[in-house]
């Protein structure tokens, strides 16, 4: 639908080395507003490296990162955040011992007063937290409770709500469903869809094609640091995704090996 406008975020032949190891090479894909781009790959495929480049933790060694069609270069997570790229990490998203509202505004605390009397506006922070979570349909009993008392799915959901609140235009989700049960994963995917419907461009990193296929609009499949292609949803089925991820021929080989020997 939005094919004519420039994508929010575009990768062109991006690559990254760690010493002599080529962690990522020749990666190209696009992220559009109101769409979900899924990055699929098995362990060690380079998903984490890709997130870190997008989030400003690492710099790409090769290729280009385009934000709104203009080349971008993030030196720190802060710079990426300021450009509207928010990352929700798998298990590092929250500080467990801190209250929900403190976590929600961590690093971007609203303040009152000036000079030495500048202080954290706690009343507003609690109020906004409660409202934003309710707007996402997230059921939180008490913003004062420590995040550690929330379930994994709730924690992911709070992190997503936080990113959306802070005006994220691109939301990167690192394996948001991997540690969750079936039901909890469904809840998180619903919030992903909700963020998408609010016009956010979502990058969903996962190794589960069953989670990716229903919510994704575009699929980038990685294998051992290289791209196996970036497909729009119309061009690829769930089974094809699964096959691609496992490395196609390798899976056939495995099936062959596991077959019962003919008697």
């Amino acid at each position: 639908m939005t094919a004519e406008t420039a994508p929010l975020l575009e990768l062109r032949d991006v690559g990254k080395d760690y010493g002599s190891v080529i962690a990522l090479d020749g990666i190209s894909t696009t992220v559009r507003a109101g769409e979900v781009t899924c990055v699929l790959g098995d362990n060690g495929a380079g998903k984490s490296t890709l997130i870190k480049i997008l989030a400003g933790v690492h710099r790409a060694d090769r290729g280009q990162l385009l934000l709104d069609g203009r080349p971008a270069d993030f030196g720190s997570p802060r710079e990426a955040l300021d450009a509207g790229i928010a990352t929700v990490y798998q298990d590092l998203a929250m500080i467990p011992l801190m209250a929900i509202w403190r976590n929600f505004f961590l690093g971007a605390e609203p303040t009152r007063g000036r000079g030495p009397f500048r202080r954290f506006d706690a009343a507003r922070a609690k109020d906004v937290t409660r409202r934003e979570l309710a707007a996402m349909g997230i059921d939180i009993r008490d913003p004062d409770q420590p995040v550690g008392t929330l379930s994994g799915g709730e924690r992911q959901s709070v992190a997503i709500a936080r990113a959306v609140h802070f005006g994220a235009r691109v939301l990167i989700l690192d394996e948001p469903t991997s540690a969750l049960g079936v039901k909890q994963a469904g809840v998180v995917l619903r919030y992903v869809a909700q963020a998408r419907d609010r016009g956010v461009g979502v990058v969903l990193i996962t190794h589960n094609p069953h989670h990716a296929h229903p919510v994704g609009d575009r699929f980038l499949v990685l294998n051992r640091g290289r791209s196996l292609g970036s497909f729009p949803k119309a061009d690829v089925s769930r089974d094809e995704l699964t096959r691609l991820m496992a490395g196609g021929a390798e899976l056939d080989q495995l099936a062959h090996e596991l077959e019962r020997p003919a008697t």
């Binding site: 989030a55 933790v57 997570p77 802060r78 955040l81 990352t87 990490y89 590092l92 998203a93 929250m94 500080i95 467990p96 011992l97 801190m98 403190r102 505004f105 961590l106 690093g107 971007a108 605390e109 303040t111 500048r118 202080r119 954290f120």
Partner: peptide
């Protein structure tokens, strides 16, 4: 204060704190 929030966060999980800025 903001600084106080950062103190809790840095002690609670430094990597997570740094990741949110």
């Amino acid at each position: 204060t903001r600084f106080g929030n950062w103190v809790f966060a840095t002690g609670g999980d430094e990597v997570a704190a740094r990741n949110v800025g």
